[in-house]
Simulated scan of single mutants.
Amino acid sequence: MKKVLIVGDTLEIGRTEEVYGRGFSAFGCEVQHFTWKAAAPSLYSASLWDKVAWRLAWQPLAKLANQKLLDIANQFQPDLTLVISPRLINPDSILALQQHGLVFVFFTDNPVDAHHTHTNSWVEQGFTLWDAAFIWSQELVERLIANGVKKAFFHPFCSDVEYHFPKKQANPAYDVTFIGNWDASRKREQYLKAIADYRLGLWGSNYWNSHCKEPGLKGLSQGMCSYTEIPEILGSAKIGLNILRPQNEEGHNIRTYEIPATATLMLSERSEVLVNLFAEDKEAVYFSNPDELRQKVQYLLQNPALIESIAEAGYKKALENTISDRVTEIANLYQEIIFDQNSQVQNIAL
């Protein structure tokens, strides 16, 4: 595997496609990027996110962008194409890319739910075509296989130690910090309401001010933060809070690694996947409802030595799960599939 083509939305720092590009380059591969945003900027206009407009316009625009993708692939001749979130890739393009090499997909959203930003007819038609599919939930692995995916694998997110590292303040300004946008389920509101009387740091979109219905949280958000600001923000708190979106409740999210990678104690909503990734009360602390969250915050703040020991153990675990580890896993699978394909060809020849 010498050449890797990575297909994704954009190359902003910290985006999955950008992180994996750095990972494959460090692995020794020649990497070429293709981004839908550069190929078809109109697909990202605000008006297109209206459900009606999206249904009418996305396929014609995406077909033009798919031709640009195939032109790049024909020039680059990749051994492996890795597609990050396949919402815009035509199933015919998957087949065309397979003329050059294997084609893998990493589903960063849940492709078997009904949300139009996660799935569509092309995503569903592509299930049977991928050489391998990765996703962040073991339960969703089983559902992908049930939907016709030939090879599906649990593939956790990872630590990006180039940008996320300890930056602890000697005197943290916050007891608890949460980085995350307001969510229409209002679950995040209810959790934060339970600890609003502590020193709570909040970063996220302006929806926290315009849509949040909890008076105690109004005006608390300090706005969006950049990917590079995460270590400083988490370092300003004793505890880093992780509240899952509904779509991630069957697995985990990128915050799972961002928090412990900064040597900050992760206090996270509990999920089976998360508990298996970071051992409960040893490498992270978990809660399942607002009352338990409040109890855990109170107990931890009364036991600073426990915060320090769990944060240190979580940090060590985070260092065992970097982009280098994830790329190695993909490379090993690539070799296995190539070996199996070559063996089948030899058996047919015999």
Rank of each mutant, 00 (worst) to 15 (best):
V297A: 10
L241I: 06
Y257M: 14
I239C: 06
A284L: 00
L306D: 01
A261P: 14
A261K: 13
P260V: 10
S324F: 11
V327F: 06
E249V: 12
V327K: 11
A311R: 00
N321F: 08
V327N: 08
L241N: 04
T256H: 11
R270P: 01
L301D: 03
N242S: 09
M266I: 07
L319R: 15
A305K: 08
I243N: 05
S268I: 00
R255K: 15
E272P: 00
K317V: 11
D281E: 09
S271K: 01
N321D: 14
N303F: 06
E280M: 03
N303W: 03
L274S: 07
G240C: 05
E249S: 10
D325A: 12
V285P: 00
L319T: 13
A311Y: 02
L277E: 11
E308W: 02
N289C: 13
I259W: 09
M266Y: 01
P260I: 11
E283Q: 10
L301M: 02
A318P: 12
I243D: 01
E250D: 09
N289L: 07
L300F: 01
T322G: 13
N321L: 11
I310P: 00
L274V: 01
L274C: 01
E283D: 03
E272L: 06
I310Y: 03
F278H: 02
V297W: 05
L244P: 03
R270M: 08
L265T: 06
D325S: 14
V273C: 05
D291I: 12
E280V: 02
G251N: 08
I254R: 15
L300G: 01
G314T: 03
D291R: 08
N303I: 07
G314Y: 01
L241G: 04
P260H: 07
I239P: 02
E292Y: 04
P290N: 05
Q295W: 08
P304S: 11
L274Y: 06
V275H: 00
Q298I: 05
E258H: 13
K238R: 11
L277Y: 09
A279P: 03
N253Q: 07
H252I: 09
A284C: 00
R270Q: 04
E258Q: 15
A279D: 09
E320W: 12
D281P: 00
N248P: 06
Q247V: 14
D281N: 09
A313K: 12
T256E: 08
A313C: 10
L244C: 07
L277P: 07
